[in-house]
Simulated scan of single mutants.
Amino acid sequence: MAVVAVVDVTAGPSVGFLPLVSLGPAFAGLVGGWRRTVLIGALALVLCAGLGLYDGLFDTRRGYTSMASVAGVTAAGVAAAVMRQRREAELAGVRSIAEVAQRVLLRPVPRSAGHLRVAVSYTSAVAEARIGGDLYEVVTSPGGVRVVVGDVQGKGLEAVETAAVVLGAFREAAHDEPDLMSVSARLERAVDRTLRGEKFVTAVLAEITSTGRVTFLNYGHPPPMIVRPDGAARFAEPPQYALPLGLAAHGMPGPEPYTAPFAPGDQLLLYTDGVSEARDRERNFYPLAERAGLLKDPDPEAALEALRHDLSRHAEGPPHDDAAMLLIRHRTG
């Protein structure tokens, strides 16, 4: 508005810049509230009237036309600001409800579970979303600390719905069932009732007791990584990979439990393929085992955050798939 006023005074009334004063209330309606738009519109009308008198435009229709255009744009800007504020309020309400639903579905894991310390990192491939098709949960049960990390085929709301089914079944079964095989059977039944067609869920289940070993069941999921105190990393590969959850109708046998040493000082990292299959510009996969040294921080959350930042640098941009990581350590002190 100031620029238009200066140009109008400099160029004279013959150029016809005066109606451009209405740009002020127009932009105010886009970025400000209706009160601010009214204030800017009133200022624009005063400025238009002053310039019209200075240019002598009220002797003709040009002055009144300019005033009418500024008033009309101001009214439109006020209406647009009111509608935008209402929609922003509705969006804020919907977003708050969505955040509550996300926290209920994928609630924060406890920092300590029995004799263990736990940290989690989740990066969704969908903008503005905190959850997606990846899932994780930690439950302290009479049989030990039981963990699940999984990845639902596909993306979007359908994947979130399937993740909710798996998490609900695991949370209930992990408390009730006497062993990990019984927990997995409950999961298979829940997924079979829900999934249709060729949908499936890869998952790894773990049971950690105070005996210094961890038991795994792997449903076609990337193998967990165990990091020793000296920084050496190895993957706990299953003797034979089983089909993912939801594909039991194909008649293949289910997963066989297998164990691995997990003593004080060791670290256990469970993750989804959004981590292991992240690629850089040269299409190289993320070298997870080579980055095990990033987990040396005494604080497990800080260690996992360092690994997440390194993963983002490797991918050089937003993730193309959900990436979940769950780090487990023995408690000390």
Score class of each variant (00 low, 15 high):
1 M>P: 01
5 A>V: 12
8 D>E: 15
8 D>I: 03
9 V>S: 05
16 G>Y: 04
24 G>W: 03
29 G>F: 00
29 G>I: 01
33 G>M: 00
36 R>D: 07
38 V>G: 06
38 V>Y: 03
45 L>Q: 11
45 L>C: 09
47 L>W: 09
50 G>A: 13
55 D>V: 10
56 G>P: 10
57 L>M: 09
62 R>C: 05
67 M>T: 04
69 S>K: 00
70 V>R: 06
71 A>I: 04
72 G>D: 01
73 V>W: 07
77 G>R: 12
78 V>I: 15
79 A>C: 03
79 A>V: 12
81 A>G: 11
82 V>K: 06
85 Q>E: 15
86 R>E: 14
88 E>S: 06
93 G>D: 13
96 S>C: 13
96 S>V: 10
96 S>N: 14
96 S>F: 01
98 A>P: 02
101 A>Q: 01
106 L>P: 07
107 R>H: 08
124 S>R: 02
126 V>T: 14
129 A>V: 08
130 R>C: 02
135 L>K: 02
142 P>H: 06
145 V>R: 04
152 V>R: 07
153 Q>Y: 01
155 K>L: 03
156 G>K: 08
156 G>A: 06
164 A>M: 11
165 V>Y: 04
165 V>A: 12
165 V>F: 04
167 L>H: 01
174 A>G: 12
179 D>T: 10
182 S>H: 14
186 R>I: 04
190 A>N: 09
192 D>K: 08
193 R>F: 13
193 R>H: 13
198 E>C: 01
209 T>K: 10
216 F>Y: 15
218 N>E: 12
221 H>T: 07
225 M>T: 13
226 I>C: 09
227 V>F: 01
229 P>Y: 12
232 A>L: 13
234 R>A: 15
235 F>W: 09
241 Y>F: 14
246 G>Y: 02
247 L>M: 15
248 A>D: 08
251 G>K: 06
252 M>Y: 15
255 P>R: 12
255 P>V: 03
256 E>N: 11
257 P>F: 08
258 Y>A: 15
259 T>W: 00
260 A>P: 02
260 A>H: 13
260 A>D: 09
261 P>I: 00
262 F>I: 01
262 F>D: 03
268 L>Q: 04
270 L>G: 01
271 Y>I: 05
272 T>M: 08
273 D>K: 06
274 G>D: 09
277 E>P: 02
278 A>E: 03
288 L>G: 04
288 L>H: 02
289 A>I: 02
290 E>P: 00
293 G>Q: 05
300 P>L: 09
308 R>P: 00
309 H>S: 06
313 R>Y: 05
314 H>T: 03
316 E>V: 03
320 H>Q: 10
321 D>C: 05
321 D>I: 10
326 L>M: 10
